[in-house]
Amino acid sequence: MLRSRTFWDQRGLHPVARLLLLLAVGVLVMIAIGFGFASGGFTRHDLLAIVLYAGIAAFAWHPATAAFIVMLLTSVGVVLTESGGDLLELAIALSLVAATCAPWVIIAHAVLLALLTAYIASDGSTLAAGGVYGIAGIAVIAFLLGVAFRLVAARETFLVAERSRISKDLEAIAQEDRERIADELHDGIAHDLTLILFHARALPLQPDEAARNVSLTTIEESAEAALQSIRSLLSLIRDTETEGPRVHPSRYDGNIIDAVSSLGALLNDAGIPTRVSAPSAPLRVASANERALTETAIEAVTNIIKHAPTSQSASLDVKDRADVVELVVRNVVVAPPSGNSDRHGGRGLHRARHRLAQCSGTLETDGTGDGWMLRATVPTRAGSSDPM
């Protein structure tokens, strides 16, 4: 810490030290005034002493200014009165300078003290035998006391900064956990509950037994999936050190081709004729990128069922291009909403865009005049490496 530049930066006194300094200066001023009245008048030395004490009090607010005031007044006192008392005060003041001022001010103070001591010692009339050593010893002790006070203040500043950093880190960890839980709720449970709600509402309106059986089966399977998601979420909450199992990648194994086939079947079961197009060969894409694309497809289909359940048709297309794998999801509605108020989507699309960005992918959503379109891309394996 002593080698740190910030340790030697100018710093103010601790509030408690500032209060004690002002009390001490107040007592010294009262003593000087008392001696002046007792002796029947104030001498030039008494006036210099009072002004010097006022300069010392300035260390409570402006240490550098106070240091130069003290150096100036003690220099005047030594030259005019040739008093060793001024040297003693200058030596003691080194403790305040060392505790608050920058290194060059400390050096200037020490050099001035040495020069004035040499000036007085050359006369030999005001310093007792060995007085030079006494001044030097007091100066060294004052300097060490000042450094000690600076060390205590720096340590307190460091502890306050460390406490603030730890508090921010804990808040960031707590926020990250909240985000993870929110993601599990949105990506897992919300998807299944959307299917349950849709088919529960549609069940009384189904025209035949086969359609009712499809709705009942979907409700049962979605309820089981939601229950599993809740168990996974509880496990995530209880054990924050272990990453909770992701719901949808486990359902589709992070395979976008299987995912769009299953999601197309879900839309067909929901009464939305859906066309699915995907390559038959495995995709040239990293597993993390494919998982991000899979979750984006789930989000898109969930939004269609939730916000446009009366869509006339939909399509899910996966295209393996030269440098990217592209997912395009479209739906056609009877009366498309006016404007593009949902262009950027809510939390789900925001999270999907964030996941894709982490994989150097992109996500675009927009109205098409007769419905809605989502286009997502991720780099192929040649353009990215699997972080797993």
Rank of each mutant, 00 (worst) to 15 (best):
G146I: 01
F143Q: 09
I298C: 12
G137I: 13
G36S: 08
D258R: 11
A308Y: 05
V329E: 00
V152K: 02
F42H: 00
L2M: 06
A17M: 06
L28H: 12
R291I: 14
G371C: 03
T294E: 07
R11L: 13
G348Q: 02
G345H: 00
P379Y: 01
A225T: 00
R5A: 09
V111P: 00
G134P: 05
L21Q: 03
I106P: 02
L263D: 10
V16W: 10
R347W: 15
A292T: 09
T242Q: 11
L145M: 12
I230F: 05
W104N: 01
E364D: 12
T81G: 10
H186D: 15
D239I: 11
A57K: 01
V132R: 12
V301I: 05
A200E: 10
L151G: 13
Y53I: 08
T362C: 11
L52E: 00
P207R: 12
A382G: 15
S235T: 13
A153V: 08
T43G: 01
P249L: 05
L52D: 07
S75Y: 09
D239W: 02
A49M: 15
A108E: 08
L115T: 11
M30T: 09
L266V: 14
D386S: 06
N213S: 15
M30N: 11
L203R: 04
A110C: 05
V140H: 07
M388K: 13
I33M: 12
H62P: 04
F35Y: 04
L96K: 01
A136L: 09
V325G: 04
L316W: 02
N268L: 02
A110L: 04
P387V: 04
V318R: 03
E364A: 15
N268W: 06
A153W: 06
E224C: 12
F59M: 01
L72I: 14
I166K: 07
G271D: 05
Y252Q: 02
V51T: 12
I230L: 13
A67Y: 04
I272D: 04
A110W: 06
K319D: 15
I56K: 12
D86C: 10
P15R: 03
Q206K: 14
D342P: 03
E241F: 12
D208V: 08
D123G: 15
E326R: 01
P207N: 08
E179V: 11
L327E: 05
D366K: 15
T43S: 03
G130F: 06
T218W: 00
H109S: 06
V152F: 11
T157G: 14
A49C: 13
G77A: 06
N289W: 12
L115Q: 06
V78P: 01
